[in-house]
């Protein structure tokens, strides 16, 4: 069973703020999902190739060639705050 504590923990990891009522609903939702996964886990998948990607494509490479980067105007056009060519964010303590 997924409890509310787990929901709050996952929400904190994802930087989401959720209300108490939501936490209860999400706990039920997540539980349904996990029950379904349990069901899948019981299937016999011998002989089925593991899938790591849904597209039937592989080996998509790029050559090591320089392409133009953004101009400073472009790079900072969406910055909430900037200071001397740096993106300015609330202080994080190390």
């Amino acid at each position: 069973m997924i409890d509310k504590k787990t929901v709050y923990y996952v929400a904190a990891l994802a930087r989401l703020r959720i209300e108490d009522a939501e936490a209860e609903r999400f706990a039920r939702n997540l539980d349904d999902i996990l029950q379904y996964i349990d069901k899948l886990n019981k299937l016999d998948v011998d002989g089925v190739r593991p899938t790591s990607h849904v597209l039937a494509v592989e080996n998509v490479y790029r050559d090591d060639k320089v392409l133009p980067s953004l101009s400073p105007e472009e790079a900072f056009s969406f910055a909430v705050e900037q200071h001397e060519r740096h993106y300015k964010v609330p202080k994080v303590i190390e």
């Binding site: 200071h83 300015k88 609330p90």
Partner: peptide, 13 residues
């Protein structure tokens, strides 16, 4: 990250 005490913020490159 450059932690700037004077501006009380973090600058990112």
């Amino acid at each position: 990250l450059i932690h700037d005490d004077r501006l009380n913020c973090t600058l990112v490159d």
